[in-house]
Simulated scan of single mutants.
Amino acid sequence: MGRYQPPDALAFPRFAGIRTFMRLPHVQSPEGVDVAVVGLPFDTGATFRVGARFGPEAIRSASVLLRPYHPFLRVNLFEHLSVVDAGDAPVAPGFIEDSLRRIAEFLTPWAAAGVILIGLGGDHSVLLGELRAVAAAYGPVALVQLDSHPDTWDAYFGHRYTHGTVVRRAIEEGLILPQRSIQVGLRGPIYGPEDWEAARALGLEIVTAGEARALGLEGTARRILQRVGDHPAFLSVDIDFFDPAYAPGTGTPEVGGFASWEGLTLLRGLIGLPLVGMDVVEVLPAYDPAGITALLAANVVYEVLALLAARRRDGLPAVALLGARPEGM
């Protein structure tokens, strides 16, 4: 049984207590921790709708409905994992480069201790701070990005740091291995063919939403696992991967996306993925009046926790070996 886990919902009601993810203990030291959930309440890297700074709070509130046993993977999360909510990383609203630095500094000690990081965004620009912390511990990682946009533009309004440029900046900084990275779910209107071709030119593999449907969920999961191999991986889920019918509360919605059951089924197919971190980003509560987007985001994190617990149950290390460096390093 993990050292840190939620209280028994049959002894302490779900609506009571301080609001943390899944009502986990709020702990600020990595000792005895396998996984830490961290809020990343920054949204002024967004180029359209803002409000994702309130995403971590909404996801935590929705997460109180989650229970410890995953019936599809047949695993109790907290029999195999010690999980905490580490609170929110400090940010400076309106100052993106400073906020990215603060996020990385906050997360680095956790990553260095071998703790798997789960970020609650925040707009997608927060990914750069997360990757800086993770790469400091593991070297460049494989990026698995579920998203309707590639986020590989070079600049917006003459500025190089936005939620739409974050993956290009991560590649330039040597934080991810493009040859082991994959983007799944791209769709919607674009400025021109170069928008997606630019991602391919950077070395990323792209599976558009249409291609993923043709491959099927099982085939898409297999393609992700083959691309990553046994390299330390970071999973980044932009909630706009899902169709706005299921996730209306997001910054840049695109129709023709995935149903909630499709996305969760795809995640379940990634069992064995050697994750060192993940995030779910772009949840905007102001555009989510029924709370369904936040609830879906909480369940995305739950699926990843189940993957990590199943990996531990099956006798695999929780993450790739600390200090290991991928090919080319």
Rank of each mutant, 00 (worst) to 15 (best):
F21D: 00
E57G: 06
G55R: 14
F54Q: 14
A16I: 15
P56Y: 05
E31D: 15
V35N: 13
G55M: 11
F54H: 15
T47G: 09
T47I: 15
A62D: 10
G17P: 06
G17V: 08
R67E: 15
G45M: 05
G45I: 04
F21E: 02
G39D: 06
P68M: 10
R23F: 06
P68K: 08
F54I: 04
G39W: 06
G51Q: 01
Q28K: 04
L40R: 09
G39A: 03
D43Q: 03
E57L: 13
A36M: 02
L66D: 07
Q28P: 00
L66M: 07
T44P: 00
R53C: 10
P41K: 07
G51D: 01
A16R: 15
G17Y: 07
F21P: 02
Y69K: 13
V27L: 09
F42M: 09
F54K: 14
V50E: 14
V64I: 07
S63A: 14
P56K: 08
S61W: 06
V38Y: 06
L65G: 07
P68I: 09
T44R: 04
E31S: 13
I18C: 10
A46K: 06
S29G: 02
G32L: 02
P41D: 06
R19K: 12
Q28A: 04
F21K: 00
G55E: 15
T20I: 03
A52N: 12
T47V: 15
F15A: 08
F54Y: 14
F42Y: 15
P41A: 05
T47R: 13
R19G: 06
V64K: 08
R23P: 04
A52S: 15
A58I: 07
F42D: 10
P68C: 09
A36W: 02
S63I: 12
V64N: 01
G32D: 01
P25C: 03
S63T: 10
M22Y: 06
P68Y: 07
G51N: 02
I18F: 14
G17E: 09
F42N: 12
